[in-house]
Amino acid sequence: MDSFDINKFLGVLLGTCIVLLVTHFIAQAIFAPVMPAKPGFKIDVKEEPAAAGKDAKPAASDKEAKPASVESLGKRLQNASAEKGAEIAKKCAACHTFEKGGPNRVGPNLYGIVGEPRGHGRGFNFSAAMKAKGGTWTLDELDKFLANPKEYIPGTAMSFAGVPKDSERTDIIAYLRKNSDKP
């Protein structure tokens, strides 16, 4: 390789670097990014004050005020329709039955579920998360669960997304309450 070939190679290399550098400067002038004053995204999270400990006493206003969901459920139940609830519950019929002595499907039979223990009995193999939650199915518990099952009982096997409309949930709860030996 003689010196002329080396000069051609270096000329091409230098020319390429100059073209890339000029292209970079032009692109920066055309597409100048606008940097925000405060980097990042604002995420609104409702923060609840931490209790001062197990011995912390609730304020007087806390004792008098009931949780909003309990009050609103009670008010909603006054106007609820078990007939509408039966219609809405038809979308649950793919996995559940509602008649007395009905078979279990993908989910348990829901006849007389209100006031029953959660995650036990009914001849159904409940998920570990449902068994661990324990307690009984009160009207308020059903309301919270039906709103978003996966959020209320993380790890539940129920793949249903939930019923976001309060009125529909209340109608379903009225239907479940009526659908019992002791409504």
Rank of each mutant, 00 (worst) to 15 (best):
E71L: 15
K8T: 09
E48L: 14
N125A: 14
P67F: 07
V114T: 09
A68R: 15
G11Q: 12
P49K: 13
A32H: 03
V114Y: 02
L142Q: 03
T156G: 05
P117L: 08
K66L: 15
V114L: 14
A51Q: 12
G119R: 02
S167I: 10
E64I: 13
F25M: 04
P33A: 03
R76T: 10
N79D: 12
K46I: 14
K100N: 11
G162L: 08
G115V: 10
P117V: 08
A60M: 14
D171C: 06
K131H: 03
A80W: 00
K84D: 15
E83A: 15
S72Q: 14
D5G: 13
S61C: 07
G134K: 00
K150T: 10
K144R: 12
L146F: 11
I26C: 00
E48D: 12
I88N: 11
P36Q: 02
I26A: 00
G74H: 11
F98E: 01
L77A: 07
V45T: 08
I113A: 09
S180G: 06
A94G: 15
G119D: 04
L14A: 15
E83I: 15
G162P: 06
A68Y: 15
A52Y: 13
K57V: 15
K38V: 15
S72G: 09
F126N: 01
L142W: 03
K133P: 00
L77N: 03
A65P: 02
F41M: 11
V34T: 05
D166G: 04
P33Y: 00
G155Y: 01
P117F: 05
P39G: 01
A56W: 12
G15T: 13
K75C: 10
G162K: 09
F25V: 06
V70I: 14
T23P: 01
K46F: 10
F98G: 00
K66Y: 14
A129T: 03
G40H: 10
P117M: 08
F25Q: 06
Q78S: 11
N179H: 02
G155N: 02
I30D: 00
P67N: 07
F160Q: 05
K131N: 03
I153D: 00
F160R: 04
L176K: 00
K131D: 01
D181F: 06
R122V: 04
E71I: 15
A147W: 06
I153C: 01
L142F: 07
G107E: 00
P58Q: 09
A174Q: 01
I43G: 08
H96M: 05
V19D: 04
K182M: 09
D44H: 09
I113N: 03
T156W: 05
V70P: 08
F126I: 04
A128S: 08
K38E: 14
P58W: 10
S81I: 05
A29W: 05
K42H: 09
V45S: 09
